[in-house]
């Protein structure tokens, strides 16, 4: 059995374990038999109506952030890149915070006003960032993309800060949303986000070999026969779709997109043919576990899951940063 097969088996197994822990642990313990025996209606309801959609949503969000983080790190050849580097997430946040700030509710959208506005914000930002980067530099060099992301990200960040500064009542709600959460979303959110996750992930997966080639630089990739411009564009769009939809349904959950690809690389290598899929699975696992901790650690109260990911993520991030710097110094 080769290393890749082992990696897939291990990742899938931990994901299954995480799902099982995610649905069974809580104020009410759910026995495994509930999956096939629906005689205990309460347990069955908790499993299928509350915990399962929450676990699946956490999994989808974690997976989206991790796979797009892996792709952005590879594309930008920058180990410190993450799904938020491009600034698309800030656009999604502005969309969501505007909804909360003004208390908007479009009648036909109802409670889905927020995610829809958020996705619109993300999409607008994506076109602006990519459009601006192309305007600055037609070949869209990596540095151009990163700098454009920083420009838009910080500008939108200040818009967010402005709204937070001006807000009164809704402060707690806005902060809570920004920190990120996957609670009380239900199946509809899953249905809403699923097509984006599927399309975005598929686009990235289609570019797995191109990402490998681009690790050696755009010129080298060009020599190897990669249509660099087109592929770069595809990867940016794919990653943005994933990031925008994840942020729209859950807020800006930090560190998953940065840390999971690194951990996966450390364990299984940086071949994107496997890295993307493995990051997808591991991202799901990590966010399911983090969400489990977030809702049980101070039970019956809940913490925003973003707090937990950052809590675990920051030390890991520090470790990676240290390692990178040490390597660079040698």
């Amino acid at each position: 059995m080769n290393k890749a097969t082992i990696a897939y088996i291990v990742s899938a197994a931990t994901l299954l374990v995480a799902v099982w822990l995610g649905v069974s642990i809580g104020t009410v313990k759910i026995p495994i038999s509930t999956f096939w025996d629906s005689s205990d209606t309460t347990a069955s309801n908790i499993l299928w109506k509350i915990r399962m959609p929450r676990v699946i949503l956490a999994g989808l969000v974690g997976a989206s952030l991790a796979i797009s983080g892996a792709a952005f790190q590879g594309l930008l050849k920058n180990p410190l890149a993450d799904p938020y580097t491009l600034g698309v997430s800030s656009g999604a946040s502005v969309g969501a915070v505007v909804t909360l700030f003004f208390g908007l509710s479009i009648p036909i959208l109802g409670t889905y006003t927020l995610p829809v506005f958020s996705m619109t914000g993300a999409a607008l930002t994506m076109f602006l960032v990519i459009g601006f980067a192309r305007l600055v530099d037609r070949s869209m060099k990596m540095e151009t993309i990163i700098l454009t992301g920083i420009i838009f990200g910080s500008f939108l960040g200040s818009v967010l800060s402005l709204m937070i500064a001006l807000t009164g009542e809704e402060l707690r709600q806005i902060i809570g949303w920004l920190l990120g959460s996957v609670s009380m979303r239900g199946w509809n959110y899953i249905l809403m986000v699923l097509p984006f996750v599927a399309i975005g992930s598929f686009i990235l997966w289609m570019n797995r070999r191109e990402l490998n080639a681009m690790l050696f630089g755009e010129e080298r990739a060009h020599h190897l026969g990669v249509n660099v411009k087109q592929r770069k564009f595809m990867i940016l769009i794919g990653g943005s779709i994933l990031t925008g939809s994840a942020v729209a349904v859950s807020g800006t959950i930090g560190f998953v997109g940065l840390v999971v690809p690194h951990m996966t690389r450390l364990m299984w290598g940086s071949d994107h043919r496997h890295l993307l899929t493995l990051s997808f699975m591991n991202g799901a696992t990590l966010l399911i576990i983090c969400d489990l901790i977030a809702r049980t650690i101070i039970s019956p109260s809940e913490l925003p899951v973003g707090v937990i990911t950052a809590f675990i993520g920051a030390p890991v991030f520090a470790y990676i940063f240290y390692r990178q710097r040490r390597k660079g110094a040698m």
């Binding site: 070999r209 050696f216 026969g225 290598g269």
Partner: peptide, 21 residues
């Protein structure tokens, strides 16, 4: 190309295999 740096680790065989792209 001229000698150059790379951001993430690749094995020699994976690197050479990219030539088949």
């Amino acid at each position: 190309p001229q000698l150059h740096a790379h951001a993430f680790s690749h094995t020699v065989k994976d690197t050479v295999a990219l030539g088949r792209y």
